[in-house]
Design a protein around this nucleic acid. Structure first.
Lengths: 253, 253
DNA sequence: CCCATCTGTTGCAATATATGCAACGGTCAT
DNA sequence: ATGACCGTTGCATATATTGCAACAGATGGG
């Protein structure tokens, strides 16, 4: 909507893939070098872009700081964190908290397994939206039309043979999840990893976040993991209660 | 340098302090509501800003993704990480990796203590630059004039009675650190926490990062922590060698 | 050693682009 | 029902952005 800002912001994802020099930036934007220079300077002043010694540009420090502040101002996260820690202590497995935003689902908190098994996930990273248990819960709660629209425009990568294959299957799965009030991912993202998840609800009953417990087959079987379901649900409910109760509407400014 | 972009980017730190509605944003920028609207829309299209259900704006998801990609594209971090993990396993203490950028020093990686003691630090967060051991190492390596200029414009908050009080003391400390090739922070940031740090150097000998081991008094005394110095230095040197050796200059594009 | 080349930088004129205004539409509370 | 409030849109104006061309500094080859 604003050409100048649009161009400037297009630089960021470009630099996210690695440092680039002025010419490359100008080329990618399809603008004159001098224009790119001025945009980069403005980004630089705001700390979003950093100029390394070889004159090339890379993403800057303020970006981290902003992301930090943003994630910390999500109050669900603060409320939920101690519960995640406790669940992790009780089960020993990796615990995730995720929210839905726009057409993505992303992890906003994580407590790592005590077992020396690494899962590839990271706070701030988008979730495999078509298969993750937390994603199913968050999307299942969307109003019907939105759900259909979103399901239609998603890609359905077959991470494993058990991945959800297409929009129709996904919508069926969401309907089932919506009914039962919890969700699983049994090897749909990574062959040997299973998850069980439960929703966190706001005062109005809408799903505001979802939490999951994940563990690889080598540690516990899917059936064993499912025995944790009541505990996961109780934890999610505890978070829901606390979140609904407090909700301090900060309106100072 | 570019007014439009400048205004648009000024919105980000504003929203970092919590959600705001259109009027508040326009007010803070000193522009007409319609102008603010269009800027916000552009930010929104790029995913940097998210509009929550109550119509207010908050920082958006792509910001996390960008910060992630940025931090992951730092190859020092990738090389160093396994070394940090090992050092953590050997000592049991919290291990940090930090780099210098612009007039900040920031943590780019961290492996938490196995002891149940929490330190307040976070990947991406700026370091207490006047007292942290890693900061001393990174700044000590700057060319003389830059070092003086930076020291002069810093603030010297007295976190504790042992904090570095002013620019003169700081420069003396940096000179000492430069000589000895390692640094400490003995209760200069938090009364009961000590750190020892060692530099990671590039092929040209310049300090490109610094790593530290931190532990509270209640776990080990400062003297005991200092006995780890040789181990910390060996680890840092190992990272330096690996970093200097490989340095894959990616020039594909 | 000098010249050619490449990248980043600045001043300037032209015009495309962002801006503020005013009017509209929706929502909520009175 | 009515008024106030907030977000939204079209439009004319003028301002801020753009590309150009010329410059500067570094790099490398002849």
């Amino acid at each position: 909507m604003s050409q100048t800002v649009d161009r400037a912001l297009s630089i960021l994802p470009l630099l996210a893939r690695g440092p680039a020099d002025l010419g490359q930036v100008a080329g990618s934007l399809g603008v004159h070098k001098s224009t790119a220079l001025r945009l980069l300077r403005t980004l630089h002043e705001h700390g979003l872009v950093y100029r390394q010694e070889d004159q090339r540009y890379r993403l800057g420090a303020r970006l981290f700081a902003l992301a930090q502040e943003a994630v910390e101002s999500l109050d669900i996260r603060e409320i939920a964190h101690p519960h995640l820690v406790r669940l992790n202590e009780e089960t020993g497995h990796t615990v995730h908290l995720a929210v839905h935003e726009e057409s993505e689902v992303l992890y906003i908190d994580k407590v790592d397994s005590r077992y020396p098994v690494r899962m590839y996930s990271r706070v701030g990273r988008p979730v495999a939206i078509t298969v993750a248990a937390v994603a199913k819960l968050l999307l299942a709660d969307l109003p019907e039309p939105e759900r259909r629209a979103l399901a239609a425009k998603l890609d359905y990568p077959m991470y494993t043979p058990r991945s959800v294959p297409d929009a129709a299957a996904f919508l069926r799965e969401l309907a089932a999840v919506r009914e039962q009030g919890w969700a699983t991912d049994l090897g749909g993202h990574e062959e040997s990893i299973n998850c069980v998840a439960a929703p966190v609800r706001g005062a109005d009953g809408r799903v505001v976040a979802a939490m999951s417990v994940s563990a690889p087959n080598v540690v516990v079987t899917a059936d064993e993991l499912l025995t944790l379901l009541p505990l996961v649900r109780r934890t999610a409910d505890a978070i829901s209660r606390e979140y609904s109760g407090t909700t301090p509407a900060k309106d100072t400014a």
